[in-house]
């Protein structure tokens, strides 16, 4: 029987490819200056020159959404990089060596993941204040546990496989086994958690900026921020809210489809993990 094509992965990759290319384009060129205000062009609906209309200050919304999506995506990128790097290190070490440290780290992980990440982010922000760098660091740290958990599980599974034992017998160093032998084998799992990480990071950044505790208005536009500002002009300029909201949703949808396509069932995993815990 022929395998049916992986529609999720195809759809997710094409959607993400399109959005990311628009965003990358936005780093170099936007139709208008995102911050240029103009009193005569206040709240124009979508038209030929202003594809998505203008906001209450006469700023071109398409340009602002492009810039905002760029900010959101770059924050997500750095946050996921921090989370994935440290999460892989911690998860790899604990999963490979096991023991008491493994137990302790997993308990801390359980405790942290029990709380919604937006709540934890709010707590940290209430202590540290807001700003672009802070959001990146906060989200990055908050993503470490979920990466650590996935990687730990995979390492613990691979640890007892024949190829690892063989490598050990041949006298390969532990660090080499971990990063040269095991790591490539957990690639797909890691990739799909990275996709989920992007999904969560975009959502978290947008939520925080929307709540006014994310990006500072002076720093740059951000999708959440545009959505927050659009609320006051919802009646006169609904297209502003619609553009920013759809941009967030499309970004999230793309990443969700990719992780789905890579066969990583987030929902399933948390559920079956619990089940095993209760069984034991």
């Amino acid at each position: 029987m022929r395998k049916s094509p992986n529609y999720n992965l195809i759809a997710g990759c094409s959607l993400t490819a399109v959005t990311v290319s628009v965003i990358v384009l936005g780093f170099f060129w936007t139709p208008f200056d995102p911050d240029a205000m103009s009193p005569i062009k206040k709240s124009i609906g979508p038209c030929l020159s202003h594809f998505l209309g203008t906001d209450n200050f006469g700023r071109d919304i398409l340009s602002r959404v492009m810039e905002g999506a760029g900010t959101t995506l770059s924050i997500a990128f750095f946050a996921v990089s921090i989370g994935a790097t440290f999460g892989t290190l911690i998860g790899g070490l604990t999963g490979y060596f096991g023991g008491v440290a493994d137990e302790i780290v997993m308990r801390i992980n359980d405790a942290v993941t029990a709380f919604p990440s937006i709540l934890l982010a709010l707590v940290v922000v209430s202590i540290t204040g807001t700003g672009k760098e802070i959001i990146i660091i906060v989200l990055g740290i908050l993503f470490i546990p979920s990466f650590a958990r996935v990687v730990r599980g995979e390492f613990a599974k691979q640890r007892n496989m024949d190829y690892v034992r063989n490598a050990k017998l041949m006298g390969v160093r532990h660090t080499r086994i971990m990063f040269v032998h095991i790591l490539p084998n957990i690639g797909p799992v890691l990739l799909s958690s990275i996709a989920i990480g992007f999904n969560n990071a975009v959502l978290a950044e947008a939520s925080m900026s929307f709540l006014g505790v994310g990006i500072k208005p002076s720093e740059s536009a951000s999708l959440g921020r545009i959505l927050l500002e659009s609320q006051s002009y919802l009646f006169s300029a609904p297209w502003q809210a619609l553009s920013a909201g759809c941009a967030i949703s499309i970004l999230i949808l793309g990443f969700a489809l990719i992780s789905e396509g890579l066969g990583y069932r987030r929902v399933w995993r948390t559920a079956t993990k619990r089940r095993r815990k209760v069984d034991a």
Binding site: L203, S207, P238, I248, S249, L253
Partner: peptide, 22 residues
């Protein structure tokens, strides 16, 4: 379902405010 899952609750809230409220 997959699409609805990707829409953040606060954006749905704004859509509701516009459609049902305004």
């Amino acid at each position: 379902n997959q699409i609805i899952m990707s829409i953040p609750a606060f954006f749905i809230g704004i859509i509701f405010t516009y459609v049902f409220g305004l």
